[in-house]
Amino acid sequence: MAADPFDSALDLLRRLNPKQTTDHLNDIISLCPDLTEDLLSSVDQPLGVRRCKQTGRDYLLCDYNRDGDSHRSPWSNQFDPPLDGGEPGVGGASAEGGSEGAGEAGLPGDRVRRMEVRANEAFDVYRDLYYEGGVSSVYFWNLDDGFAGVVLLKKSSPQGNTAAEGVWDSIHVFEASERGRTTNYKLTSTVILNLSQGGARASGGGGGGSLDLSGNMTRQVEQDLPVESDESHIVNIGRLVEDMELKMRNLLQEVYFGKLKGVVGDLRSVGSLSEGQRDRDAQRELIGSMRR
């Protein structure tokens, strides 16, 4: 039985270097153009940055604000480059990736757009407090029984530091199903982390060596929360994203840095070899005396 090309492409991407996901994805798309929309809406990539021509503010690029080769700015609500034939109608995508408009993002309705503007203002403050820099963007779109959206956050290492590089991308896709005084929120969060150490130090012969640590993590949560007004949606989404980012940061610290510390500790001895040998000899002598 022949393997499904889409499943095979996803399986291949999981086995390749996550730091080069965008390059690998473009290579697969060039080989299988029919999979373009499905792959772009299913594979999380490092977020691109573009400057809004109307406001001069940076915003993040993803599949949820893309229409063809154009991306919508959350600050001006305009597509860049402008779409042929005018602006699209109201549309959007499902938070679970089955898109009514993933890759063909429409403009949100008036009410949802007002919430989008407020959410961008709120998460701009969150970004400044938690990340002390970087770029944030929030995009909303309409659903039949509510609305959905994505919260994007990106932080890169300071420019000009060639010895150490680091990029954090977090993508929080949510779906809000309104049910009277309560709303059901489904949140899918992905963190893409790229860390490297080396570059100038390694090539300069300083003996520092090089390190490349890259990967991603995805978690989901579903919760019913009370809603009194549209402002309550912003508060609820903010709390869900904040809690999820805290949990994922702790998991990354344990998985990435805890495992790395253990590996380095096994490979590198802090003391000299002679001291280590003396300790092992003393240990064997002690165990031998206990057996007599």
Rank of each mutant, 00 (worst) to 15 (best):
A3W: 11
P5E: 06
D7R: 05
R15Q: 12
K19W: 09
T21A: 13
D27N: 11
I29M: 06
L31K: 15
P33S: 07
T36M: 10
L39H: 04
D44W: 11
G48R: 13
R50D: 05
R51H: 09
C52H: 05
K53R: 13
C62K: 00
R66M: 05
R66E: 04
H71E: 01
R72Y: 02
R72F: 03
S73M: 00
S73L: 05
P74Y: 02
W75L: 02
D80I: 03
P81R: 07
D84F: 13
D84I: 08
D84G: 05
G85E: 02
V90K: 09
G92Y: 03
A95C: 14
G98T: 09
E100H: 14
E100I: 03
A102S: 12
G103P: 08
E104L: 06
E104F: 12
A105I: 00
L107C: 08
D110Y: 07
D110P: 14
R111F: 15
R114Y: 09
M115T: 03
M115H: 07
E116D: 04
E116H: 04
E121C: 08
E121Q: 14
A122G: 03
A122M: 00
D124S: 15
V125E: 12
L129R: 12
Y130K: 15
Y130G: 14
G133P: 03
S136F: 07
S137W: 12
S137L: 06
V138P: 10
L143I: 01
D144C: 01
G149F: 00
V150M: 09
V151M: 02
L153Y: 04
L153K: 05
K155Q: 14
Q159M: 08
G160E: 04
G160F: 03
A163E: 05
A163M: 14
E165C: 10
G166A: 13
V167K: 13
D169I: 01
S170I: 01
S170D: 10
I171P: 01
H172Q: 12
E175D: 13
E175P: 01
S177H: 09
E178D: 11
R181S: 14
R181T: 13
L195T: 03
Q197S: 14
Q197D: 04
G198A: 04
A200R: 15
G205W: 03
G208P: 06
L211E: 10
G215K: 02
N216A: 07
T218W: 11
T218N: 02
Q220T: 11
D224S: 09
L225V: 08
P226V: 07
D230A: 01
E231P: 02
S232Q: 04
H233G: 07
V235E: 09
N236Y: 06
I237C: 01
G238A: 06
L240T: 00
V241M: 05
D243I: 06
E245T: 02
E245I: 00
K247L: 08
N250T: 07
N250V: 05
L252Y: 10
V255N: 04
Y256I: 08
K259A: 15
G265V: 04
V270T: 10
L273N: 11
L273I: 03
S274E: 15
S274T: 05
Q277L: 15
Q277T: 10
D281T: 10
D281C: 12
I287Y: 12
R291Q: 07
R292H: 04
R292F: 11
